[in-house]
């Protein structure tokens, strides 16, 4: 039973050990440090998405929250009247998280109150957010599309000078949201809604309120991820999140959370994040020619997904 629930942990460990044994420089302190640093923001945003996927939904807007937060954050820190003041960093953090929460509120209302499919609602807000990011970038960045020169105090959040800080932030978020899912009534209600929302409603679960909250959580955590990504790259980039969705949703699904909802969890997403980031890291370290990297990465991800499926089926048969 433990192996069935944690198969991706097992796969990750096998790969990690192989990396330690066979991949030159993989075990170096510098590489392990960077590997964990790269896992951190992906874990944060994927944790939020996990809540939505457990409900059988999807949140495309996470990527545009990352981009929009990046643009507005960089502007506030470098070019606005706030720049250089002691309040610049804390206020910027609050504003970026606020942007994520605002998107979450809009998504949550659209899905829970207006009964829009999450696919449609969040695709719309994703497009709006991506458009706003580029638009604000063109207005705010005085002729350039990206903006660097972020203050060191903000860049520390991305690990500059304090590599452990993004890892600590991601760990705290993981622990809190894993606990919420596993140990609270709210968490159990999310699983109940994911399995069958009608039954959950009949049982007295506040379905609309909970669905609304799921999107607020997802948006808020995407805002936190935006802060880490922007700090890590030391620049506001309007297209920062554009190519990230595959990794975000890939971490959730490969980790073992069922896209149809009701099965999985934040713990599984952690495995997915560790595995996907590990594969990229190992392939880069092996110096494999770039056109093979995507092929190998795709094949390994398929293999991991198949393993996951096999173990699930074995579990189902065992229970039958």
């Amino acid at each position: 039973m433990f192996l069935q629930d944690n198969i991706m942990l097992f796969v990750f460990l096998v790969f990690f050990i192989c990396g330690m044994l066979f991949v030159d420089k993989f075990a170096s302190a510098y590489n392990i440090k960077n590997y964990l640093k790269n896992c951190a923001p992906l874990l944060v945003v994927s944790t939020g998405l996990t809540y939505v996927v457990l409900n059988g939904g999807i949140d495309f807007s996470t990527t545009s929250i990352i981009s929009l937060g990046s643009v507005l954050g960089a502007h506030l820190l470098v070019e606005s009247p706030l720049a250089g003041t002691p309040l610049a960093v804390p206020l910027t953090i609050l504003i970026i998280v606020g942007i994520g929460l605002a998107f979450g509120v809009v998504n949550g209302l659209a899905v829970s109150r207006l009964k829009m499919p999450s696919f449609v609602a969040t695709l719309s807000t994703q497009l709006i957010g991506a458009g706003l990011a580029v638009w604000f970038g063109s207005i705010l960045f005085e002729g350039a599309v990206s903006l660097g020169g972020l203050p060191e105090a903000f860049r520390a959040i991305g690990g500059r000078g304090m590599f452990w800080l993004p890892i600590l932030i991601a760990t705290v978020i993981f622990v809190i949201f894993n606990w919420m899912l596993c140990k609270t009534v709210f968490g159990k209600q999310i699983y109940a809604i994911g399995v069958n929302p009608r039954t959950a409603e009949v049982s007295g679960v506040p379905v609309k309120k909970n669905i609304f909250l799921l999107f607020v959580i997802s948006g808020g955590l995407a805002g936190v991820a935006s802060i880490i990504y922007t700090a890590k790259n030391g620049a506001g980039v309007p297209t920062m999140g554009d190519a990230m969705f595959i990794d975000i949703v890939g971490s959730v699904v490969i980790g073992g959370t069922d896209p149809a909802g009701g099965f999985g969890g934040v713990k599984n997403t952690l495995y997915g994040v560790l595995f996907l980031t590990l594969v990229s890291n190992i392939l880069n370290l092996m110096g494999i020619e770039w056109f093979y990297v995507d092929l190998i990465k795709g094949a390994l991800v398929i293999a991991a997904a198949v393993l996951n499926l096999i173990f699930k089926n074995l579990g189902a048969r065992g229970r039958a």
Binding site: V237, A243, N284, G287
Partner: peptide, 29 residues
């Protein structure tokens, strides 16, 4: 993808390369 490029260069550093030649995805990032 500027974020991916930065990760890739970190991986070069981990490999102890002697130098890096970079066609930048983004001049600021």
């Amino acid at each position: 993808d500027a974020n991916v490029q930065n990760q890739q260069i970190e991986d070069f550093i981990a490999q102890d390369v002697d130098a890096v030649i970079c066609m930048a995805s983004d001049g600021a990032a």
